[in-house]
Amino acid sequence: KSKLVLKLIEKLKLILLETPPYDLEDKNIKQYQGSILELQELLHLKFNIATEILLRQASTLADLDSGNMEKVIQDENVTLYVWANLKKNPRYKSVRFSETQIGFEIPRILATSDIALRLLHTHYDHVTPLRPVPTSLREYTATVNHLVKDEVKYEETAVDKELQEEGKQQENESNSVHEEETKFEEQSGSEVQTSFVREESEATKCELEMKLLSETVLSAQFLLIKNANEKPYIFEDNEVDLCQFTTLGGVYHLDILELPPQCKPTKGWMIVEILKEGLQKYIYPPETTEDVETESAFPPIEVTLEVQENVILFEDPMVARWDAEGKHWQTD
């Protein structure tokens, strides 16, 4: 089902990307973008539910050596790394997932806490906001198309009238010159002249439409350049320029979670307490630190990531983090 959701998201993004702006109405754009966001939230909710179910069974999946749970679940779109701190051993601060180079270095305060760490590696980017569709260009192009259609109709009417007048004039001249010819010959000549007039009319219409179409394309291109969003020249400190860079290799989501109540075997039954709130995040560092120096008392978690084998790097990659408040990527 996750693959189906991802396919739907990609199809909606493709529609917004490939459809000309003047063919999309505002309500359709809002509907497509809203559907994309809802599908992304649905996908993230599914990962949270799966993580919660896994963490409830952490005690039954514990490693024999460390006593803690380490689990890696992988498919073609995501890789999930989950570590549950069951023993709360203050000396056990280094975590390495088996057969990988991915791991954590956690501070002592977390090593003694009832927590779990989840590293979700998605091979897609659902964090960067969707790009807006240029409304001004869409409205202008639709207006231009409407005016062009009206102009084509007006020109076609004028051409038809002109050709009809020429046809009548030619027919009168033909009648005056060939009065002595038979009725059959007059009818035959009239049919030839009518077909010639029709062919000339169609050729003139086609030429007019091509001319107007060329003018419309030039106008649209000029407006596109005129209304193009200018690249900002001033960025905040350590902010990533999305006009120059893009995410590569997916996104890593690191979460510190509260360890849910563990299931307990009782007389052949497995009893587990299911919290109404569901999966909860562990607040670190605490919100009320008062006068304590946060960085020294609550040091950060060190994360080690492994570069994929199918990636060739010609220079050092830029690692960035998502700033939820500023809605941009930062390299600090």
Rank of each mutant, 00 (worst) to 15 (best):
Y233D: 12
L6P: 01
V217W: 05
K3V: 01
L313F: 15
L86P: 04
E302F: 15
L305E: 07
F298N: 02
V319C: 14
S214A: 06
M69R: 03
Q74W: 01
S35D: 14
I49P: 03
V144A: 12
A111I: 08
L279E: 00
I115F: 06
R91W: 04
Q221L: 10
K93E: 11
P286Q: 03
S2M: 05
Y92Q: 13
K211Q: 13
A297Q: 10
I15W: 00
Q193L: 11
Q74V: 06
T246D: 01
K205E: 04
L37M: 07
S201R: 13
T331W: 10
D332W: 15
R118W: 01
Q101R: 13
H146T: 05
L275D: 08
R56P: 09
I36Q: 14
E302I: 14
W329S: 01
S113C: 03
P265A: 05
V127W: 02
E199N: 07
F222A: 06
T182W: 00
E207V: 14
F97P: 00
H44A: 12
Q187N: 10
Y282A: 05
W83Y: 15
M318C: 12
F184T: 05
Y282S: 04
H146E: 06
L224M: 09
I312W: 03
S66N: 04
Q164F: 05
V72E: 02
E173Y: 09
Q280P: 06
P286S: 07
T288L: 08
D23H: 11
Q187D: 12
T304V: 08
E70M: 09
L17S: 08
E70C: 04
S188Y: 15
P107R: 08
P286K: 03
K149M: 00
M210T: 11
L212P: 09
K149S: 07
T122P: 01
S2K: 09
R138F: 06
K168W: 08
T288H: 12
M69G: 01
Y284W: 05
H121V: 04
I109A: 05
E41Y: 15
Q187Y: 10
I53A: 12
D65M: 04
V95Q: 07
